[in-house]
């Protein structure tokens, strides 16, 4: 009788121990699988830095702020809506929402439409060398000198369109970013 009771007790103990162990394991496993940002509170500066890293750095000012970092400041400090950046588009809104724990909302098209990436091209025959576009380019992607032909450094142009309005002879146009060999990649299988 006693031995039966002992046996049952031992059995219960083993099962309980196994249960606890399994629960613990599954717990560590599930936390391990989470990809959410660390739970440690972040300083405001760190948050701004992280949000700024998510922004496309086109520096086009379409969001109503003079560049991406100012917009990052506004998002973190002034709680600005996260749907004002047309170059970032929906994927940026998704990333920001998941990072900041906000709802995914559609892009506010008042600020502009999301377009495929593009770059500026100066018609070098028409350019009069007025240097106005150089002053407008937020990322120093245009080179040229006074009264000499200007050109766009394709690899540095972000396609922000800020150089278009100041050009007095309208010789700058935006072209879709060409697919070059080093930018090509395999398509998704059909």
């Amino acid at each position: 009788m006693i031995s039966t009771a002992l046996a049952i007790l031992v059995f219960i103990a083993i099962v309980a121990a196994a249960g606890v162990a399994l629960a613990w394991l599954s717990d560590t496993d599930s936390t391990d699988n989470q990809d959410s940002p660390d739970d440690a509170p972040k300083s405001e500066q760190q948050l701004i830095e992280a949000v700024n890293n998510l922004l496309p750095q086109t520096q086009c000012a379409q969001c109503g702020h003079p560049g991406c970092r100012p917009y990052a400041n506004a998002i973190v400090q002034a709680n600005a809506p996260i749907n004002q950046c047309p170059p970032g588009g929906d994927s940026l809104i998704r990333d920001l929402a998941s990072y900041l724990g906000k709802d995914v909302i559609p892009l506010n098209t008042q600020f502009g439409e999301s377009k495929p990436s593009q770059l500026a091209l100066i018609d070098e025959a028409t350019c009069i060398g007025c240097t106005l576009c150089i002053a407008a380019c937020p990322v120093d992607a245009i080179v040229g000198a006074s009264r000499l032909m200007h050109t766009v450094i394709a690899s540095q142009c972000t396609g922000c369109e800020l150089c278009l309005p100041p050009c007095p002879v309208d010789c700058i146009s935006l072209i879709p970013e060409p697919v070059t060999l080093n930018r090509w990649h395999w398509p998704r299988p059909a």
Binding site: T58, R69, P138, V139, Q156, T158, W184, H185, W186
Partner: peptide, 27 residues
């Protein structure tokens, strides 16, 4: 192959973004 290409494109996009931010900051 497709996903690796996507990954590389993403990386180069990030690199370019970091570069343009740096140029913007310098400016």
């Amino acid at each position: 192959r497709y996903a690796k290409g996507l990954h590389r494109a993403e990386q180069s996009k990030q690199r370019l973004a970091a570069e343009s931010e740096e140029r913007f900051r310098l400016r």
